[in-house]
Design a protein around this nucleic acid. Sequence first.
DNA 1: AATCCACTTGTTTTT
DNA 2: CAAGTGGATT
Length: 777
Amino acid sequence: MITLEQLLSQLNEHQREAVAYNAGPSLVIAGAGSGKTRVLTYKIAYLLLSGYHPSTILALTFTNKAAREMKRRIADLVGADKAKWLWMGTFHSIFSRMLRSEAERIGFTPQFTVYDSSDSRNVLKAIIKEMQLDDKVYKPAMIQGRISYAKNNLITASAYESHGNLLKSDSDARIPMLSNIYSTYAKQCRQANAMDFDDMLLYTNILLRDFPEVLEGFRQRFQFILVDEYQDTNLAQHIIVKRLAEIHQRIAVVGDDAQSIYSFRGANIDNILQFKVQFPTSKMFKLEQNYRSTQNIVAAANSLIKKNKGQIQKNVFSEKDEGNRIQLLTAMTDTEEGYLVAKEISDLYYQEHHPYSDFAILYRTNAQSRNFEEALRKRNIPYRIYGGLSFYQRKEIRDVLAYFRLIVNPLDGEALKRCINYPTRGIGETTMTKVSECANQNQVSLWSVIGDPVFFQLPVNRPTATKLTHFYAMIRALSDDATTLDAYEMAVKIIKTVGISEDMTEDMSAENISRRENIQELVSGIHTFCEQKVNEGETQIGLADFLSEVSLLSDQDLDAEGPDDKLTLMTIHAAKGLEFRNVFIVGMEEELFPSGYVSSERELEEERRLFYVALTRAEERCFISYARSRFRNGQLNFTNPSRFLSDIDQNLLDLPADFRQAMSVSSFMPNKREEEVFEKKISNEESDAPIKTTQRFTSSSWKKVASSSSQMTNTSATSIQSGGGVAVGNKVFHEKFGQGIVVSLEQMDGNWKANVDFGSNGSRALLLKYAKLVILE
DNA sequence: AATCCACTTGTTTTT
DNA sequence: CAAGTGGATT
């Protein structure tokens, strides 16, 4: 047990002020590595020591891991007996708890299923098919994205139907039926007693909006509210937090606007930038001392993020050693990139005796992991990959979980389809289509139809009807068992009863063995889960208890922090909040990082923040690598180094000898000219067909592309204004004419022609093939 | 109904 | 390169 004085003495001045301030709302802007988690945990400990009961404190985090970690640290400070009463968890897990306790009010049961994104995509696919729409136009993933966006902005299906602007923009985008799809989707989810991730936020809002007594109850209960990573909250989350804190105004949020990287998921950076507006009496605290990284790394990150505008002004500094400069590794191919990185790691491991767990390889996309895996394997370097296909997304695991879901919630249509299909029992697509149609016509669930095909006049023959009722009876019997057995016993029973174990032991193929192992892992996971809950004093841990937690878990949460010494491979997104002694940021190429999908200044700035997050993960050493060519979709692409490299103060970079040359064929988009560029892009679209970067590899293409270097795809924002290695807006130098600005670019017979304004020397049209322009900036 | 094969297709990040 | 689709086969 610790006293208040001791607690505060372990903090620096600014941290202490932030922790001790309790007189009103507060916003803590915590620069990278400045002890953000420390402030949050100490603040909670401070509140507990000042007399708040733990069950009156609500702390919302972004990941389960962060919540667990924080809880553990609070337990160390004030004791586990207190810490365990805290309401601490992710938005989704806390809201799940709230929704389950009040489910009936909004037309669900406490056993509602959580549809993951592939469940919800499947539902959407079926709806699109049912409505006889073209799935090339109504792309499920895109529809899903728009619905998600609507929900995150608290636009319900019925609000959408009467939202003029949205309907107009949909009809302009040639997808006028989107609103109908949304409505049908919402209706079907409701009928299935299921919510998707976004629904959990949406329905929590509805619950708090429409049921004043519920809102009042939660306001009473949560006397103090803390939110981590506030820069990544979306409108739905923001409004919930605001509602809960509205009366007592005891709220503290922590975040860093420079690390906002989830706008694709609806996060709105304005939530943190506008906090003062939302909570006018709030006080802002800034944490600017970085305890994580060397001075060089901090300086590099600062120089990068300076290129973004509209940030909260701060001066992040480090008092650690100056450290090494950031080292750039240049490879000819993506395979070589893997080799170089692995070699560097090997060298550090043997020369400096850093354990492998001190290393991380961070990339923009999961698909990039392959080359590194191979290179690491060749050197026998142990590694652990995070992300990608998670444990819970494996087919066999999803199959088993589908049975759990169906037993807990028979209305869960997606689970039912999955179960009925595996193990195979002679019920196929045609039958299920009929069942779906029949269910739709009678406005009942698939489950009801299967239970009594005759009553619903399902047009199937006798043997098929029997198969259906058999299946129904089997699930019913298991549901009965579920009233007395715990989750672990049920899991074992289900796997035996439904024929999964039989199917898996049929042959000893490698796949079957691996599947069996995975299922075994799941079962023992459930066992551990039950034991843990019993230890915490709970009784009767049923399947529902297990499911409600597991559906909100990602694979990162499951990783047993084993004693083994392994290197980490993950996306930069997944690395947020983590730190490593040595960090490798790989694939620093145009089209990849920044992603080829960026189409606005705002998105480009988010990519830059992502790079900022990557850099600031490093404690001691940071390496950046890129390849000049890379396989993508089975095709060889030639690539240019990322523009972000030139955003970093060049004095802090260790450049390879050939780097200047490589940069000179790269294209850099000057930020301030961007709007012009996009206007130009639109006007040029038909006339100016850009050369495709993607081409089959032939012996001559390397040379050809390297010299003309018109390597942008036509989807790229940079495609029009860049060519021959220069970009519109570039300041260039010409031997004869001196300095000038590139005004426009066009293509003539495959050669790039640039109009350059040389000021007093006039404007000139130059063929880049002949003119030797040097890019100045 | 289920399986297999050849073809197309399309690709960020995730609670 | 991969996953997912559509068609033919058993």
